Amino acid sequence: MEPGEREGEGADAAAGAAETADPERLKALSHPLRRKILRRLAAHGPATSTTIGEALGENTGTTSYHLRQLEKYGFVEEIPERSAGRERWWRPTRGPRDVRMPAAGSLAAADRPVLAEVLRLGHAEDMALLSRLPEEYERDREWARLSRGFTHMTREGLAEFFEGYLRLLREHGFGPEDAPPDARPVHLRLFTLPADED
């Protein structure tokens, strides 16, 4: 997911983080077109349902409906000063940019499939990005950077490392409306897996 937010998983949301534990809010993120709309707004800044529809190959009625659903659950907001008549301008909601998925055990059994679908969609998006890495790395190493790591950590140390990574994103990142002219939208991913299960 890339709605102009940093997505993380974990039950311990840090200060400034917002956990998406509401099942209805999770359902809003489980629709592929809504995720594309969020990524579009995060990468290219404010847009109307018409301009988003043109960019994504969808009709305006469809994108308008999904924008209203995203607004209902707090992921996007209208920009009243830019909207006029029937033309409404949208942007990612301002506020916490670190949105965390709940632990599966914190959800009712009936809501866990929704979380699984959100994570499945995110995994598919991540795999599509990963498949682009060799070509992008060859084209422009200044923007396509990579690192592979291996170390031993304690549970507490790993949690601290993760929070430090998110602090660096907040320190060095910009939203689409406040980015300097030489900034580009950049996909960033961090995941950790225990190696003793290999």
Rank of each mutant, 00 (worst) to 15 (best):
P181I: 00
H172K: 12
E171N: 04
G164A: 10
G173Y: 00
L158T: 08
G175Y: 05
H187D: 12
A183W: 05
S147Q: 13
F191S: 09
L168D: 15
L169Q: 10
T151K: 13
E177M: 07
A183E: 06
R170H: 15
E171H: 04
L169R: 05
L168E: 15
S147T: 08
D182M: 08
H187L: 03
L188P: 00
E160N: 11
G173F: 01
E160D: 15
G173K: 11
R184Q: 10
L190V: 08
D182Y: 08
F161D: 06
E156V: 12
A183K: 10
H152K: 08
P181S: 15
R189T: 14
R145G: 03
A179W: 06
S147W: 08
H187V: 03
R141D: 07
V186H: 00
F161G: 07
L166I: 11
T151N: 15
L188C: 09
P181T: 02
D140G: 01
W143C: 01
A183L: 05
D182H: 13
A183P: 06
S147Y: 13
E142C: 01
W143S: 03
F161W: 14
L168R: 14
G173C: 10
G157D: 06
L158A: 09
T151V: 12
E177T: 13
R184Y: 02
E156G: 11
L193H: 06
V186Q: 03
P194H: 08
R189Q: 11
R184W: 00
G164N: 07
L166S: 04
G175E: 05
R141C: 02
A159R: 09
E142M: 01
F191P: 03
E142F: 00
P176S: 13
L168P: 05
R145V: 02
R189L: 09
E171W: 01
A179P: 03
R145N: 04
L188F: 07
L158C: 06
P181Q: 08
A195N: 11
R148I: 10
L166P: 01
M153W: 13
L193N: 10
R148A: 07
G157Q: 08
H152E: 13
P180H: 12
R141N: 06
R148H: 06
L158G: 04
P176D: 02
D140N: 03
